[in-house]
């Protein structure tokens, strides 16, 4: 059985779930950012696989993947800036202790 579209999509679904688990369960904010990057990468694999197998002539999926990467870079930079700002004021990056706005 040769590898086709569905192999890539299932791989991407598995990666997305792993990233989802990390983003929900981890307490260190930096590790949560890493899990978010895994999720975005999974979405990129989906976009590129669909671009390769469903619309090979139009490059729409790959262009979208480039935009996702742009947003991911901006998100990583801003997320880390926020985490460092929180660390300066509260001396922790444990999201269960960052509860100032928790009702």
């Amino acid at each position: 059985m040769t590898v086709g579209l569905q192999h890539y999509l299932v791989l991407s679904a598995v990666l997305f779930s792993i990233g989802f688990y990390g983003a929900i369960s981890k307490r260190n904010a930096v590790v949560i950012l890493m899990s978010l990057e895994i999720m975005l990468n999974a979405v990129n694999i989906t976009l590129v696989a669909l671009s390769r197998y469903v619309t090979p002539v139009a490059m729409t999926g790959q262009v979208f993947a480039i935009f996702v990467m742009t947003v991911a870079a901006a998100e990583a930079a801003l997320g880390l800036a926020i985490i460092i700002a929180i660390y300066r004021s509260r001396e922790t990056v444990d999201v269960e202790k960052i509860d100032l706005m928790k009702w």
């Binding site: 369960s25 981890k26 307490r27 260190n28 904010a29 930096v30 590790v31 950012l33 890493m34 990057e37 990583a76 930079a77 880390l80 985490i83 460092i84 660390y87 922790t92 990056v93 444990d94 999201v95 269960e96």
Partner: peptide, 19 residues
């Protein structure tokens, strides 16, 4: 960027426990 973030928030001792 992520490795810089880890080093600047010096919480290696705490590790990354699950909540």
């Amino acid at each position: 960027l992520l490795i810089f973030g880890i080093m600047l928030t010096r919480e290696q001792r705490a590790g990354s426990p699950s909540g």
